[in-house]
Design a protein around this nucleic acid. Structure first.
Lengths: 198, 198
DNA sequence: GTCCGCAGCCTAACACCAGTAGGCGAGAAC
DNA sequence: GTTCTCGCCTACTGGTGTTAGGCTGCGGAC
């Protein structure tokens, strides 16, 4: 019997695959061990905990999402960058629904401190810089942009759009265009409300 | 011993309270039974399943949210209605985090077919009608609005905003103002892209 | 008032899961 | 070749969902 190729990153990757095929909440230590043909307690050499395993799936997802979004944004600006950024999110959900699910969860402290989390923010910032949004406003815009994309995709994922007629794809285009409008007018709107020069 | 005050709606309500205090995933049949001083199998007279219990918490949340949002919108229009609608969502999350969590989940078929789900959409439509958004565009706007609000609040809930400086409250105001801008310009943007008269 | 039906809660039991304690053997170090 | 170490193992505990079937006390029929 080969001593085994079991490994922390291998275990996490397998957990992510199980999440994608059967949903995150069916990612269980017993299921992961079964998929390796191994007994459950053997995993504790590589993973502290079930919670830690799921947290690491979250970190993996953050990392992959940041990479995919970064590639989609590279060399583009404004509307093109925004479209690529949004499409990266949507395609990641389509390709890896279980890992996406892991992003919609409150993760442990070591997961949120991971560099992968910061990378996602950095890519978002790159899009906003293309719109000329800087300073403290950029944090607000990051949150608005991230929230809108995540929220739409999450509603689509849980089936909220499945029972009304127009396909979600069209609404998605509307959302991206709406965000373009918001980002284009961000500065003017901010100054008109007198928040930037108090 | 009183024959019991156990009841389907009482059980669901207790499950919702447990969700609010300890999180939705700690809503377990064993915990609900314990809170009534009753054995676990006794609950099966009132609830089909653990999944059904959680689905009914979702329906309860949809109903309460629709009521709260409806009251916040009544007699208002445009920016005022939007602000009330958004504030209703945010306050519901603050007051009932566990029930909110139940809204971010894929629910069973009988839950999504519940009248409560339609009521939420109707209230949203009322806000959009105030902006003069009608016809097929209204579905898109409903999804954009719902997605943006849900997404922002969900990111706030899972702590995504806890590690950057400006408080989330300010970003929330920015989001509501941004949505006002989007809804105000919805019609123009739609026609300018030639989608309404194909 | 007495009896019966039945709804509602009970015990018993099974399968599954997370997590802990300690054993054992294969490969590496020397 | 001997020894050490690490990775996987077995055995076990406590908790969970779910089913099957028993008991009991309340409400209605007479």
């Amino acid at each position: 019997m080969p001593r085994s190729s079991l490994n922390r990153s291998v275990v996490v990757r397998r957990a992510a695959e199980l999440a994608d095929t059967h949903g995150l909440e069916s990612v269980t230590l017993a299921a992961v061990a079964r998929s390796f043909g191994v007994q459950t307690p053997s995993l504790y050499s590589h993973v502290r905990d079930l919670a830690a395993l799921r947290d690491q799936v979250t970190v993996l997802a953050l990392d992959e999402l940041a990479t995919r979004a970064g590639e989609a944004v590279a060399g583009r600006s404004r509307h093109d960058a925004l479209r690529g950024f949004a499409a990266a999110h949507r395609s990641y959900l389509a390709d890896h629904p279980g890992r996406w699910e892991a992003l919609q969860r409150r993760a442990g402290p070591e997961a949120v401190a991971a560099p992968a989390a910061r990378r996602v923010v950095q890519v978002t910032d790159a899009v906003l810089l293309g719109y000329g949004i800087t300073g403290p406003d950029r944090t607000h815009a990051t949150r608005v942009l991230g929230g809108a994309l995540n929220g739409f995709l999450n509603l689509e994922r849980i089936g909220s759009f499945a029972h009304s007629s127009p396909p979600a794809e069209q609404s998605w285009q509307e959302l991206v265009d709406a965000l373009h409008l918001v980002l284009t007018h961000w500065h003017q709107r901010g100054t008109s409300r007198g928040e930037e020069t108090p």
